[in-house]
Design a protein around this nucleic acid. Structure first.
Lengths: 143, 143
DNA sequence: CTTCAAATCATCCTTTCGGGTGAGTGCTTT
DNA sequence: AAAGCACTCACCCGAAAGGATGATTTGAAG
């Protein structure tokens, strides 16, 4: 953003200087003022279009984080107090695995998984696993 | 798009005319050419930004359908043979509601919802509701 | 009018979830 | 050393989910 504005200012200054220099040499007597203004207008319109895209494109990158690749929101992760192990369980849960399948995959007992899920539900303020998944996606804790 | 270009042309012509008229009356002797050009530049830059946004905004609507808003994939919906009612149930299921809550919301019995979910699982090739939700999202049947 | 699919509801039975509670181990922080 | 936390596991119990099957109604298509 800052660089975009800087470049804009640079081009603006350059254009003013350039046109001013040319004005008294070749163009002023050969071209009418209307055409002169028109050229400037078109030039800066193009510049404006370019600038506008730069600015809005960067905005869209920040506003829509779920578009494209997933990036874990570690801030919220620490805020909710979800541990690594719990996050693992959460991911497998979201894939549609049962507690037993999760237990097998993580080489722990079913009861352990149930404890993890129970703690997850509290931290995610959910009553069911489907709700927990929904919440976790909103909070960008899972893809 | 066409209207945007039309408006642009209109404003361009208007500006040229306006500035040309003013030029020989008040400004030309009072303001230096640099400032004069600068004003034109800034004006048309703003115009360019506005135009660029108009154009790219319309492009984004057509080019990136899944980024941002959700658009149902009706092709897959018909391929899987999921009915309207089943799709309703699917959406509520994905929100984390229990079968009983879905039944209350749709004014049908719990058994009816269970039948719908059972049929959904077959059509989505899922064994559990969490799996069904996962599959449905992949197939763009739900947001 | 018949056929068919969708939607509705039911009953029976099994599996999975989730809540509550207690407890042992190991690592880090104080 | 003691406290705190994450991780582990266990048992009990009720709620929710899921499987299988049969039945009725209704609207659309043939």
């Amino acid at each position: 953003m800052t660089r975009t504005i800087f470049i804009y200012g640079l081009v603006l200054a350059l254009a003013v200087f350039l046109l001013k220099t040319l004005e008294y040499r070749f163009l002023f007597r050969q071209l009418s003022a209307e055409i002169y203004i028109g050229i400037i207008g078109v030039l800066f319109t193009i510049l404006g279009v370019w600038m506008g895209q730069k600015i809005t494109r960067k905005k869209k990158v920040f506003v829509t984080p779920q578009a494209g690749e997933f990036r874990l929101n570690e801030k919220i992760l620490s805020e909710t107090g979800i541990s690594k192990r719990q996050h693992e369980v959460l991911e497998l849960m979201a894939k549609g695995l049962t507690n037993q399948e999760i237990a097998d995959k993580l080489f722990v007992s079913l009861n352990t998984v149930k404890t993890h899920t129970a703690n997850l539900f509290v931290k995610l303020d959910a009553k069911r696993r489907t709700q927990a998944i929904q919440r976790a996606k909103e909070l960008q804790l899972i893809p």
